[in-house]
Every structure is written in structure tokens, then in C-alpha cells.
Simulated scan of single mutants.
Amino acid sequence: MKKVTTLFFSLSIGLLLASCGNSDEEKKAAAAAAAGPQAYPVFTVNAQNTELGSEYPATIEGIQNIDIRPKVDGFIQKIFVDEGTVVKKGQLLFTIMAPQYEQEVRTARAAISSAEADVNSAQLQVNKTKPLVEKDIISKYDLDAAQLTLQSRKAALAQAKAALANAQVNLGYTSITSPVEGVVGSIPFRTGSLVSSASTEPLTTVSNTSKVYAYFSLNEKQLLDFSKTYKGNTLAQQMKNIPAVNLILADGSTYPQFGKIESINGQINTSTGSASLRATFPNAMSVLKSGGSASVRIPQHVSNAILIPQKSTIDLQGKKFVYVLGDSSKIISTEIEVMELAKDKFYVVTKGLKAGDKVVLEGFQSLKDGVKIKPEVKSTESVYAGIKK
């Protein structure tokens, strides 16, 4: 009997709590219905011309990076420049102490003096023999022999002069000058260091950075998109139609001067699956350094673009949705398609929206499709105010 009474009491308490719970939910629903639709910010979508920019990591190189190497063996006698010095073409950089080449010059000059004396002696012999032959005092054979001797002495003199020129060239290699105008790189050697023409490390590098090359890569898909974006029957024609590009520096700032894409490698690297491109930028103030890193930004103009704030979209199973305000202030969950490139914090919509549609701006996490809301209209100017032109 006690068990039956206890069971009856428990069931009574459960039914009472359930009725109270249902009552609370009904009260909340009734309160929400009495309060009316909830307010949400809404803005009107419009079409506008905009410019997108795709960025690609790049490495910077001077238009000339010349390794300065010794052509003769010896000790560094003097260094005339410091690292980072701007030098002109022909400016002296290093001198190498190599006395053997000075000795070769002296030896060659002495050989020339000896050869000149031999030539003079042979010439005298020819001059003495010639009239004797003409008077038939001696045979013509003697004159021929004297002339051959003179010819041999002249050849020896020419050889001695060539040896002197070669010795002077080698001696000239002991003074190393800059082949181009540019900036001196690191100098790993110091005065007194032994250097050789077989050394793997250069004395320094002179970089001509009056202009710089920015090298970057595009994968196969990007190359195909690239070729479809810019008109032209040939690659050269397409490159002419590519607009000027920007350079984004390592600190995030934009280089003040524009560059131009001048080269596209026609072959895809099989190991990386990409092709290399080269953009050229002026660098009169030497702001850009050879070996630096940056990003090349290629602009793309889009006419009558539908822009939507990224915060106004919902990602669901790999698709994007927005809430569009429909008739009777009811919202409609609408799927949209967007371009891969974004404009600041805005998506460029290619499908799903049109100019004049009203979209819920934000705060819609608890919304459901078909719910009636109270729209709070936001001005189009305030929504699109953050877009960079």
C-alpha cells in the first residue's frame, strides 16, 4: 500500500513540474509574440566599380649582380671601399700584391730590347749583302739567308712584345675595378688575405639596383586564369595589356612606384608546378635591396561588382549564405557565390544577389529562414565606407 502511495505521489509531482515547464515556455513565447519582431540592421546592396588585387610572394634582385673575383693569385694589398658603398663603373675596389707579375713585365721589356738589337743587326747584314749581290761579288744565296735571318729576328721581336702585353694584362689584374655602377655587398676578405682565381667565394658583389627585378610564381591554374583575364593573341600582347603592378614591402607598406611585368617563363617547373614571372620596378632612391623579399600585387578591375561584407555571410557545408529581406519583412536564407579574390573585408558576389536587394548586416546567429524581423535600415554609405578605392 505504501509503494502505491509513493508511486502516485511521484507521478503527481512530475505532472506538476511538466505543466509548470510548459507554462514557462508558453509564457516566453507569448511574451515574444507580444513584444513583436526583433530588430536587425539591414542595408541595401548596390553595384559599383572596384579593383581587386592578388598578391604573390616575390624575391628582389638587382638588374645586375656581379661577383667580383680575382684573376690572379696574391695577397690583398688594399681595400678601397666598404660594404654598402655606392660605386661607379671603373672605380678601384681592391689591389692585390703579386710581385711576380711586375717581374714578368721587366723580363718582357728586357726581351724586347734584346730582340730589337737582333733585328737591327740582321737589318745591317741585309743592307751590307744586298749591294754585293747586285755586283755579283757574292751569290744571291747569301742575301736570301740574311733576309731570312732578319725575318726570324722580327718574329722574335713580335713575340717579345706579345709577352710584354700579356705580362702587363696580368699586372693590370692586380688592380680590381667595378665593372658596373652599383652597391658593394659583403666583403668576406681583409687586407693580407691570400686570394686566388680558383677561390669559390668572391671578393664581393656589386649590385646595380637602379632598377630591380621582382621574381614571383603562378601555379598552372593561376596561369590559365591569367591568360583568360588579359586579352591578346600572343603572350607578348597579353603582357602589354597587364596593368602596372604594386610591390608590397616586408613591413606591409606599398612601394610608391609602380612596376611592369616584362617576362613570363613559358615552361612550368615540374617539381613546383609553377612558372616564374618577372616584374621590373624603378629604384632611383635605392630603397629596394637585392636579396630582399616582398609581394607583387596584380590589380584586376571589376565593373558593376556586387560587394557584400564578409560578416554578413554564413558558411554552411562549404557554401555561403546571406539573409535577404523579403515580403512582409520575412527573411530568406539565400545561397551566394563569390570570387576567390576579396576586396578588403568584402566579398565580390558573382551569383545570388542583385543591386537593390536588402540584406541583414550582422547579429543573425539566432535567426531562422522565414522569420519576420523588424529591419533597422543602415545607410549604404556607412556600410561601404571602409572600402579602399
Rank of each mutant, 00 (worst) to 15 (best):
K3Y: 12
K3H: 10
F9N: 13
S12Q: 15
G14S: 15
L17W: 12
C20Q: 15
G21F: 07
N22K: 12
K28H: 03
A29D: 07
A31K: 13
A34R: 11
Y40D: 01
Y40K: 04
P41Y: 00
T50K: 06
G53Q: 08
Q64K: 06
Q64G: 00
N65Y: 09
I66E: 09
P70F: 07
I76T: 14
I79D: 07
T95C: 04
A98T: 05
V105M: 02
T107S: 13
A108D: 06
A110I: 01
A110P: 00
I112A: 11
A117Q: 08
S121N: 14
Q123N: 08
T129Q: 15
P131S: 06
K135G: 11
I137D: 04
S139K: 02
D142V: 03
L150V: 13
L150D: 15
R153W: 06
A158Y: 11
Q159A: 15
A163C: 05
A167T: 13
N170Y: 06
Y173L: 00
V180T: 14
G182N: 10
I187P: 02
S193N: 07
V195H: 03
S197W: 03
A198F: 11
V212A: 02
A214D: 10
Y215Q: 09
Y230P: 06
G232A: 00
Q238H: 09
P243S: 07
A244Y: 05
V245G: 08
N246E: 13
I248K: 12
N269L: 02
T272S: 14
A275M: 07
R278S: 12
F281W: 05
F281T: 03
L288T: 12
G291L: 02
G292K: 08
S295N: 14
R297I: 04
H301W: 00
L307A: 13
L307D: 07
V322E: 09
S333P: 06
A342K: 12
V348L: 13
V348F: 01
T350Y: 07
T350N: 11
K358D: 02
V359I: 00
L361A: 12
F364P: 01
F364C: 05
S366H: 04
I373H: 01
K378C: 11
Y384F: 05
I387Q: 09
K389Q: 14
